[in-house]
Amino acid sequence: MCMAYTLLMTYTIAVEGLQKSYGANPALTGVDLHVPKGSVHALLGPNGAGKSTTVKVLATLVAPDAGRVVVAGHDVTEEPAAVRRVISLTGQHAAVDEVLTGRENLVMMARLRHASRAEARAAADRLLARFDLLDAADRRVGTYSGGTARRLDIALSLVGEPQVLFLDEPTTGLDPRSRRDVWAAVEELAGSGVTVLLTTQYLEEADRLADRITVLAGGEVAAEGTADELKSRIGGETVQLVLPDAAALSAALTAVDGRARIDEAGLSLHVTTDGSAAAVRDLLALMAARDVPVERIAVHRPSLDDVFLALTGPRGVVAA
């Protein structure tokens, strides 16, 4: 309990050495996670990386095999009921009741959190207003657009004012407009002091919403940091040279003394530069001097995609 107490003082979510297997299949082989109070933390990773399993353990739905998992000062295996009182989970599917109206969904959730009828109705009114759902409040959820249903889903998870919110892939399957709606909702939460852990396979989403990002791959942590820290791990800006054939690609690589990453399938060369116009001009002059035919060039700022692929994908292939 001593360690739990120390973690409680510092972090709202503290995970150390978390392991979980389903039968013979290891889902998590050792995950550490530390999320301070009031921050938004993203778990980023491809399908099967262990994002949902981590959230399920944190939300007390699945028992860990090994490791220490403390949420808001309560150990998930020792005090699951105490954890459930302060958390809220929004799963991968919008777990809203499609037959009920938006308002009825909110009242039901409030009643399940032991609010009186009057309190439940008041909470529903507040959340409908806060998430811009008043127009849709008395229609059945089955008639909602995907984005509206997800906004209701997030509003539902705030019933009872949880301290910790788990959002498991909140925008998967949404169109770009709905995704922006959900982002606005999450940003709205971030300002309210709630601690948010969200999982996503969209780098743009993690970049935009999260204070810090943990990259999961194959059941373990591949990297952790702010979006900027992760980007800086793979260098500054790159200039991409697209070449007509493999011979030209090889000649171009020789011209820069091999100091570049190549994408053989895309016939392109990625040279790290300081991002200045002079550097681009020098590079093109070098290619011209060696008679290397360059078809097109592009200046490429590092994105989280690059980080993601560098950390989790096959080596040597660079994101477009």
Partner: peptide, 13 residues
């Protein structure tokens, strides 16, 4: 299959 069970189970219910 729609996640309602998980939502209910993550409540103090």
């Amino acid at each position: 299959t729609t996640g309602m069970v998980d939502r209910i189970r993550s409540l103090p219910v």
